[in-house]
């Protein structure tokens, strides 16, 4: 029995959407180095839709895989849907995470929410 599912290992080994969006419309950063996890999420938003997302993560295998999967789940989605993304959805899309690693999926959810908050603070009109 491996530590992680095949899906987790796939997203860990070949993370999707790694990097920085220089002119991002929303940026979110969560976690702290003391606990060993930091996730930074960059969003590009147009007409109420996430057109691009990229991430940078300092953390364990499941933190990297959770960030990668989260970006895949939100690209092309309207903000109304992105707002509703839960950590459970991220974990399920990865075919599950070990119980003590569920906080990695929570970080992914929070990073996205954080980036959305950043976007809304710059574009209060979009919240309506």
């Amino acid at each position: 029995m491996a530590l992680y599912s095949e899906k987790v290992m796939d997203h860990f080994r070949n993370p999707r959407n790694v990097g920085v969006i220089e002119d991002a419309d929303g940026v979110g950063e969560v976690g702290n180095a003391k606990c060993g996890d930091i996730m930074k999420m960059y969003l590009k938003i147009k007409d109420g839709v996430v057109t691009d997302a990229k991430f940078e993560t300092f953390g364990c295998g499941s933190a990297i895989a959770s960030s990668s999967m989260a970006t895949e789940l939100i690209i092309g989605k309207p903000l109304s849907e992105v707002r509703e993304l839960t950590n459970k959805a991220v974990a399920e899309a990865l075919d599950g995470l070990p119980a003590y690693k569920m906080h990695c999926s929570v970080l992914a959810e929070e990073a996205i929410k954080n980036a959305l908050d950043d976007y809304y603070s710059k574009h209060p009109e979009a919240k309506a």
């Binding site: 993370p15 790694v18 990097g19 920085v20 950063e29 180095a33 930091i38 996730m39 930074k40 991430f55 940078e56 993560t57 300092f58």
Partner: peptide, 8 residues
């Protein structure tokens, strides 16, 4: 390090 926000 290439995608670590701390390293950046």
């Amino acid at each position: 390090r290439s995608f670590s926000p701390i390293w950046r």
